[in-house]
Design a protein around this nucleic acid. Structure first.
Length: 558
RNA sequence: UCCCGGGUAGUUCAAUUGGCAGAACACUGGACUUUGAAUCCAGCCGUUGCAGGUUCAAACCCUGCCCCGGGAGCCA
C-alpha cells in the first residue's frame, strides 16, 4: 500500500532546493495560491494548493492565499468565502489574512505610468477585433498599431483620461510596446489595461480601468515577496511577458520566478469551469456541492477525507507531462484513510426479510460487535438480535451460482456478531420472487463461533427488523461513462452516466439512529463507506464501495 | 504554418544526472480471516514514440522524423 505522507521529489522541489543552495532568494521560500474568485474550487485546484502550501511547509517558508480579482465582470464575494473555507477544509492555513490583487491597484497604476513615461507602453484606440487581426498569426508577423508611435506625454494624458472616465468602456486600452514580430504571440504588444464600468467586489466603483492578468500577476508576486510563482502549463508562453513586466520596474526584492506544471485530469469526470457550470445549470447535478461533483465541496459532502486528497496529491506527483489519473487511484487513498478511521456499522440497503423459525417468541439478545477491528481502542457496541431480521437481497440465492457461498437453501452462514443460521424455506410472490427466507439458528453459536469448531464460508450483515432505523441512502457511480468524457470529439455531456445516482430505502442498526456528526463517515460493513449528510440526519451518501471480489468474479464470467 | 512544452508498464510517476529500467494503483493467484473488506506473500505488465549516431556503456548526449498538449481574449 502507498505510504501516506512521504513528500516525493519532483522538478519543482529540485528547483527550490537548487535556489536554496545558491541562496537565490536569500534562502527564502515564499509561494502563493492565487485563484480567481469566479467559481468553486475543484480537485484540480487541490493539486495547486497542496503544491504551494506543501512547498512552504517543507522548506520552512510561507504561503499566501491571494485572490486574483482583476476582472470584476466574473467575480463574486460568494466565491471568495467559499474558497477560504475550502482551503481550510483541505487542511492548510494561509499565512496571515488573504491577499487580493485589487489591494495593489494603485501601485499597479503607478507602475503603468512609469512604463508609459519610459516609452514602453501606449494607448491604443482600436477595437478588440482590429487589435486581434493585427496581432498576426502563428508564423505570420503582426502589424503595428497606428497609435504605437504616440509620445509618452500624449499617452500619459490619455491613460489618465481613461482612469478618470473620459472614454466609454472598451474605447481605449493600454498596451505594452514590445515586439509585433515576436514568435511568442504573448509579446505582440499585449493589453495591460481595459476600461470596464463594472463595480468590483472589493474596490466598488473606485476604478473603471482594470489591469489584465499579465500586468497584475507578476507584480503582485513581487509586492508580496513571492519567490516561486507556480502556475499551470498554459501560462508557459506568458513567462516571457511575466519577466518583461518585472524587468521594467525597480523592485523592492528579488524577481520571482514563474514555474509551470501540468494540471490534473481525472478519468470519468470533468474539471473545466465551463463544464462544471453546465452540470449545475442544466440540473444534471443538484449543485456545486453535489456528491458527484469533483469540487472540494462535492467531495466533502461525499465523505472524501481531506487527508486522503492530500495523500493522493503526493502520490500523483508534479511534472510537465499532461496526464489523466485514474479515479481509482483517488478512491484507493480514500479507502486507505477511511479503513483506519471509520467506525463499522451494519446497514441493509436492499432488504430481504429473514424469519428464524426456532427463535423463542419475543426474545431479544444483545450481541457485541467491534466498532473498528483496525483500531481496538474504539471498543464494541451492543446490537439487538431477534427472530425477524433484514438481510441484503444479494446475500440470498435460491439457486446459488458457482462460487457463491452466501445464504441459500440448506446452507449455513454466520450473521456477523450474531448466530449461525441455515436456510430452510422461502416465501415466494406470484412472480416467483423471494419475499422471505425462513431459517433455523444454532443457539450454541452466539457471538458467531461454533463450539464444535465447524466453519461457515460466509458471514453476512443483518439488522433486527423490530429495531431497524429507516434511512435514505444514495449510491453513486461515475458521472461519465467514458474515461475521458468527450474524447471521441462529441459533447462531453453525451457520455453522462444516467445511473450516476441511485437512491434506496435502507434499514440501519439502532446505533445509527443516534445522530452522527454531520459529514461523519462510517463503514456499512461489506457495503462501503457512507457519509452522513451535512444537513439531513437520515440521509447517507456512499463515499466509495469496498473492494468487491464477488463483483470481480461475476464480471469475469460475463 | 511559427513558437513553447511533453512522450518510460493499463494509469500516475521514479531511475542517485551516462552505469543492472522499478514503485504505487489496477489486474491475476495464494495465505489468513467473524467484512468475498483489511492485512501478508507471489505473479503479470517494457522494442523507454520511431530511425540513425556518439560511447566500453544511452531512457538520459547529438541528428532527423512522428505523435500529443498549449499559444493569435480588452479571460485567468
Amino acid at each position: 500500500m502507498a505510504s501516506l505522507d512521504t513528500t516525493p521529489a519532483d522538478f519543482i522541489r529540485e528547483r527550490v532546493q537548487a535556489d536554496q543552495a545558491t541562496s537565490a532568494f536569500g534562502g527564502r521560500v515564499h509561494t502563493r495560491f492565487p485563484p480567481e474568485p469566479n467559481g468553486y474550487l475543484h480537485i484540480g485546484h487541490a493539486k495547486s494548493i497542496c503544491l504551494n502550501f506543501g512547498l512552504a511547509e517543507q522548506f520552512g517558508g510561507r504561503c499566501y492565499l491571494r485572490f486574483d480579482d482583476t476582472n470584476p465582470e466574473t467575480e463574486d464575494i460568494e466565491y471568495v468565502d467559499a474558497i477560504i473555507e475550502d482551503v481550510g477544509w483541505l487542511g492548510f492555513t494561509p499565512e496571515g489574512e488573504p491577499r487580493y490583487a485589487s489591494d495593489y491597484f494603485s501601485q499597479l497604476y503607478e507602475w503603468a505610468e512609469q512604463l508609459i513615461v519610459a516609452g514602453r507602453a501606449y494607448v491604443d484606440d482600436q477595437d478588440a477585433e482590429t487589435i486581434s487581426a493585427q496581432r498576426g498569426g502563428f508564423g505570420k508577423p503582426g502589424v503595428e498599431s497606428p497609435h504605437r508611435t504616440r509620445t509618452p506625454e500624449e499617452n500619459l494624458g490619455l491613460f489618465r483620461q481613461m482612469r478618470d472616465g473620459g472614454f466609454p468602456d472598451s474605447a481605449k486600452v493600454l498596451r505594452a510596446k514590445i515586439d509585433m514580430q515576436a514568435d511568442n504571440m504573448q509579446l505582440r504588444d499585449p493589453v495591460l489595461y481595459r476600461i470596464r464600468r463594472v463595480p468590483h467586489v472589493r474596490t466598488g466603483d473606485t476604478w473603471i480601468i482594470y489591469p489584465t492578468y499579465d500586468w497584475a500577476h507578476g507584480q503582485s508576486d513581487a509586492i508580496e515577496g513571492i519567490t516561486h510563482s507556480i502556475c499551470t502549463l498554459e501560462f508557459a508562453d506568458h513567462r516571457a511577458l511575466y519577466d518583461w513586466c518585472l524587468e521594467q520596474l525597480t523592485l523592492p526584492s528579488h524577481k520571482p520566478e514563474q514555474i509551470e506544471f501540468a494540471r490534473l485530469n481525472l478519468t470519468h469526470t470533468v474539471t473545466s469551469k465551463r463544464k462544471l457550470k453546465a452540470l449545475v445549470t442544466e440540473r444534471i447535478v443538484d449543485g456545486w456541492d453535489d456528491p458527484r461533483m469533483p469540487t472540494l465541496r462535492g467531495m466533502r459532502r461525499r465523505g472524501y477525507p481531506a487527508a486522503a486528497i492530500r495523500a493522493f496529491m503526493n502520490r500523483v506527483g508534479v511534472a510537465k507531462t499532461n496526464s489523466t489519473v485514474e479515479i481509482e487511484l483517488l478512491e484507493s487513498f480514500v479507502r486507505a484513510e477511511l479503513n483506519t478511521t471509520a467506525l463499522r456499522r451494519m446497514a441493509v440497503i436492499d432488504p430481504l426479510r429473514v424469519v428464524i423459525t426456532n427463535w423463542p417468541d419475543g426474545q431479544v439478545v444483545m450481541v457485541e460487535a467491534q466498532n473498528n477491528p483496525e483500531d481496538p481502542a474504539t471498543g464494541t457496541r451492543s446490537i439487538p438480535f431477534t427472530g425477524e431480521l433484514w438481510i441484503e437481497r444479494d446475500d440470498f440465492m435460491l439457486e446459488p451460482a458457482p462460487k457463491y457461498y452466501r445464504l441459500s437453501p440448506g446452507r449455513e452462514v454466520r450473521l456477523r456478531a450474531g448466530f449461525f443460521i441455515t436456510a430452510t424455506d422461502v416465501v415466494l410472490d406470484d412472480d416467483g420472487n423471494v419475499t422471505e427466507v425462513w431459517c433455523v439458528y444454532d443457539p450454541e453459536t452466539l457471538g458467531g463461533q461454533a463450539p464444535d469448531g465447524r466453519k461457515v464460508k460466509a458471514t453476512i450483515h443483518w439488522v433486527s427488523a423490530a429495531h431497524a432505523v429507516d434511512a435514505t441512502v444514495h449510491l453513486y457511480e461515475r458521472l461519465f461513462t467514458d474515461p475521458p468524457p468527450g474524447s471521441d470529439g462529441t459533447d462531453e455531456l453525451s457520455s453522462l452516466n444516467p445511473a450516476s445516482r441511485q437512491t434506496l430505502a435502507a434499514k440501519l442498526e439502532p446505533a445509527l439512529g443516534d445522530r452522527l456528526e454531520p459529514g461523519q463517515v462510517v463503514q456499512f460493513e461489506r457495503l462501503g463507506y457512507f457519509a452522513a449528510d451535512l444537513d439531513e440526519p437520515t440521509v447517507f451518501h456512499r463515499t466509495v464501495g469496498l473492494r468487491d471480489e464477488w463483483a470481480n468474479i461475476q464480471k469475469r464470467k460475463a
